[in-house]
Design a protein around this nucleic acid. Structure first.
Length: 895
RNA sequence: GGGCGAUUAACUCAGUUGGUAGAGUGCCACCUCGACAAGGUGGAAGUCGUUGGUUCGAGCCCAGUAUCGCCCACCA
């Protein structure tokens, strides 16, 4: 084995290997440890319809960050993986596949054979998905992997159905439902997508039976006229008052229908008179109920007209619409047409226009179930993050209608309802009956339909833990802690999990709903198959590594908002990984002797003589621990990730390593030992803080570091099992931090002078620093930093102004003035301009602050600490400004 | 019809309790120095959509408005 990291970060070399090691060592397995607190997330099960997309990658990475962090914090963290059978979506795919490959329909195959094919599909794609989940580095407990149609979930579904049925909350009824003619099944309201389409109104005259003018109605759907049973007008509508109770004739059809009065018609819309077709319109259905009207259907489930349409029987509804409207026009019944935007409903799977149809279906009565789910959010027991999504959740629940759960499909949970062919008895129970409980007949037939796929996913947080059994997992891990999902499935899923869980388990299934946005393409378009703009996470992982992908997905975003997938962000994440990789390489290099053996490196800081920069980096890391932990608590993953990036790159790499190089290269053994200790300590903490975001890279680096003494409580064989760093009040060194910050200020201004003067970086320069009292003491302590990082060979610190050179470029920093003699290079004009710019900036600041401080309101009302801070700042700027002015005067004379 | 989000540097976006605007990418100049060119150093770049209000003080809070986007809605 190599003793140090390779020169370039190359994730392919280790990601797969590390995942295999974690898995082999059971690192993801959650134990029911009574000494620990459980932390549980049920992974939203991806559909087995195909492969994972970027949305899954985002969703799962967020969960893995939370799970890994909590695990390190000492929770017994369980992340349950699984997949969803996705009834309708999968069935559509399998049907397509059979048609393409074998030229057969599902009816050709028969139910049993079709289900065999569907299970084969599940094996194939289910396997692909779990492979992808592993590639992403997700630390889910594979020993508890579940599928929505496995034995346990199946049992849970049946239990739920029977219980709700017994309580009267599930019922069978003949009602108007959403029908997809293409998929050949009913759909719930949530599965219908609304879209506005260009269409028109036809105004047709329905002549009166008594030979009068009759009445004109507007319709966007002439073909449904064959199902008309009445014309409704508003009772207060003066135009039609006299006509209520009269009879009109359905044009060309000849059927007589009454004019009725109902509150439903809006006198402002159309002509104020509405044709009533109870079998094909939800509103009309209700009017029909109120007036006890017949409800004849004129469209069949295959979207073709039936016998009621006379000669149009067998014709597609839209074809019929054209021909029938033309025929009516021909016959003189058309008064006018009007172009209009017509709202239409489409199937969320195949985009076919949905028909409202009368049908025998199973429904869940929602009113009673919705109440406690609403209460859960309102009482604060269920928290949405960000909270604006609570509105969406509540709005949906408060306007919910009964849920149609039966589907005329084969792939799914078959409804546990049985019919006796002899006496017609309906039996609903968990076990299939052998004989009819009423008449004893053995001619029992199970309901043909399966359940809405969301019925089973609604049970996911508890069915995966063993419910309805009171299993040990269920007792220990349930309720779960957080549900992570995209805002697009709040109604489909979140809502249903909450009411199902409350009804079945008596508990709210999770405390937090952490909602994220969508991953869009670089142009901001939704990624979709039809646009072909989807990006395969595996390809990205192959190119940049899983860590870079994960970091890119979790940082630079704000909760609940969409993000764009840009490769420059990905590259920047990969570069960050490379940066840490190389910094670690530097650390490891310095921990070893020439043969690659570890040198003595103390584990603890205590008793070591730390220098300012040591204390500075320790305190920076310590404050990062605080910040990152706080923000993870608040689900602000992006802020946490951003901070660890800054600490590693801008503080550890840019400053600490540079500050310490001299000691490592030239220091004595004791000195080196101290530096080694601090390097290892800081690096380990940073690796831990970054680990939830970039698990592979951090684990790999960790494996090259010297281990502490492993013991039972902290088996440091894997970083991922190590403890999350804790904030240590001892590590706040304000004095030392301030001195290092002053050194940085000095170094930056000298570098700036060097660049401005176009002095080659290698050119040795000397400096004279004017400072007295405390300022001089601080500068004295900064001497060696300035020498090495600003490349200064000689520094004179003096309180005597006469010792400062006139022929120099200068800079003013807090408590000191720096002069860099640059005889040959000195361009007074340029220097004058540079100082003028500086002066202007300072003047603006002083102005602003003085205005603020002379504002009586500010002094009277602002908090004391703010006022003090502002005063201090003002004083500092004034001091600098004075010095700059003096300098400027001098330089002005020279040019 | 109802609701929500966005509007900040050329681009993509952060900005946690109101207290001198940040990052990444790109751009300019310089740099192969013993972790790293997937790098280093320095620099340019924003009246935070707009109007008004609250406040000593507003990118942040309130009201209105414009543009873009999303969701929900029984839709003759």
């Amino acid at each position: 084995m190599e003793k140090n990291l390779a020169k370039t970060y190359s994730p392919k070399e280790f990601e797969e290997r590390i995942y295999a090691e974690w898995e082999k060592n059971g690192a993801f397995r959650a134990e029911r440890d009574p000494k620990k607190k459980p932390y549980t997330i049920a992974m939203p099960p991806p559909n087995i319809t195909g492969q994972l997309h970027m949305g899954h990658a985002l969703d799962q990475t967020l969960q893995d960050v939370l799970i890994r962090w909590r695990r390190m914090q000492g929770f017994s963290a369980l992340w349950i993986p699984g997949s969803d059978h996705a009834s309708i979506a999968t069935e559509v795919k399998v049907v397509d596949k059979i048609r393409e490959e074998e030229g057969l329909t599902k009816e050709d195959l028969g139910r049993e054979e079709f289900l065999k094919r569907a299970w084969q599909w599940k094996e194939l794609y289910g396997g692909k998905i779990t492979e992808q989940v592993r590639k992403l580095g997700n630390s889910c407990d594979w020993s508890r992997e579940r599928f929505t149609m496995d034995e346990g979930c199946n049992k849970a579904v049946i239990e739920m159905f029977v219980k709700l049925y017994d309580k009267g909350l599930i019922y069978r009824g003949n009602r108007l439902i959403n029908w997809c003619p293409e998929c050949g099944t009913s759909l719930s309201d949530a599965e219908v997508e609304h879209e506005d389409k260009n269409g028109k109104y036809w105004y047709f005259r329905y002549p009166a039976k008594d030979g009068g003018e009759g009445i004109v109605v507007a319709t966007s759907r002439p073909e449904t006229m064959f199902g008309d049973v009445a014309i409704a007008v508003h009772p207060e509508d003066e135009r039609y008052k006299d006509m209520i109770g009269k009879t009109v004739i359905l044009p060309l059809v000849g059927r007589e229908i009454p004019i009725i009065a109902d509150e439903y018609p809006d006198p402002e819309k159309g002509t104020g008179a509405v044709k009533i077709t109870p079998a094909h319109d939800p509103n009309d259905f209700q009017v029909g109920e109120r007036h006890h009207l017949e409800r004849p259907s004129c469209i069949n489930p295959d979207a073709k007209m039936n016998g009621l349409a006379g000669k149009y029987e067998g014709l597609d509804r839209f074809e019929c619409r054209k021909k029938w409207a033309a025929e009516l026009e021909e016959a003189g019944y058309l008064v006018k047409t009007e172009d209009k935007v017509i709202p239409s409903g489409e199937c969320y799977r195949c985009s076919t226009i949905i028909e409202s149809m009368l049908s025998d279906q199973w429904f869940v009565a929602m009113e009673e179930l919705a109440k406690p789910a609403i209460e859960a959010a309102k009482s604060g027991q269920l928290v949405h993050v960000p909270d604006r999504f609570e509105k969406i959740y509540l709005h949906w629940l408060e306007n919910i209608r009964d849920w149609c759960i039966s589907r005329q499909l084969w792939w799914g949970h078959r409804i546990p309802a049985y019919y006796c062919d002899d006496c017609g008895e309906l039996i609903v129970q968990t076990e299939a009956p052998v004989v009819c409980s009423k008449c004893g007949s053995s001619k029992i037939r199970q309901d043909e339909d399966v359940l809405d796929t969301w019925f089973s996913s609604g049970l996911w947080p508890f069915s995966t833990l063993g419910w309805p059994e009171e299993s040990e997992d269920y007792r220990y891990f349930y309720p779960t802690d957080v549900l992570v999902t995209g805002y697009d499935i709040i109604f489909f899923w979140v809502v249903r999990m909450v009411f199902s869980a409350i009804e079945m388990t008596g508990e709210i299934p999770f405390k937090y709903v952490y909602v994220h946005g969508l991953v869009r393409d670089a142009e901001g378009r939704k990624m979709s198959k039809s646009l072909g703009n989807g990006i395969d996470p595996l390809e990205i992982i192959d190119q940049y590594g899983a860590d870079a992908l994960r970091f890119m997905l979790t940082t630079g975003i704000s909760p609940g908002n969409d993000m764009r997938f840009k490769t420059d962000k990905l590259e920047s994440s990969r570069n960050f990984a490379n940066k840490l990789w190389n910094a670690s390489r530097f650390v490891i290099m310095n921990l070893q002797d020439e043969e690659g053996n570890f040198l003595e490196t103390p584990e603890f800081m205590e008793g070591l003589e730390l220098r300012d920069e040591d204390k500075w980096i320790l305190s920076r890391v310590n404050s990062a621990v605080q910040y990152i932990t706080d923000n993870l608590e608040k689900f602000e993953l992006s802020l946490a990730g951003q901070r660890i990036y800054e600490v590693i790159w801008n503080e550890f790499c840019d400053w600490y390593i540079e500050l310490v190089k001299n000691r490592l290269y030239q220091g004595d053994e004791q000195e080196k030992k101290v530096v080694r200790a601090v390097l290892v300590h800081a690096l380990k903490d940073m690796l831990k803080l970054l680990h939830p975001f970039m698990p592979f890279l951090t684990e790999e680096i960790y494996s090259y570091l010297p281990k502490g003494t492993p013991d039972a409580d902290n088996p440091e064989d894997f970083l991922m099992k190590g403890a999350w760093p804790v904030v240590d009040g001892q590590l706040e060194y304000p004095e030392e931090v301030k001195r290092i910050e002053t050194a940085m200020e000095a170094i930056k201004s000298i570098r700036n002078i060097r660049a401005e003067a176009e002095a080659a970086p290698g050119r040795k320069l000397r400096a004279v620093i004017l400072a007295d009292g405390e300022g001089a003491a601080v500068m004295e302590s900064c001497r060696r930093y300035i020498m090495s990082l600003a490349n200064i060979t000689e520094i004179l610190i003096t309180a005597d102004k006469t010792e400062t050179p006139e022929e120099a470029m200068s800079a003013v920093i807090s408590g000191a003035e720096i002069f860099i003699p640059l005889d040959d290079l000195l361009d007074y004009k340029a220097e004058f301009e540079r100082l003028s710019r500086e002066k202007k900036k300072l003047e603006e600041e002083v102005d602003r602050l003085e205005k603020k401080l002379s504002n009586e309101g500010f002094v009277a009302k602002a908090p004391a600490n703010i006022i003090a801070e502002e005063r201090e700042k003002a004083a500092g700027y004034r001091d600098k400004l004075d010095k700059i002015r003096d300098r400027l005067e001098l330089v002005a004379r020279k040019c």
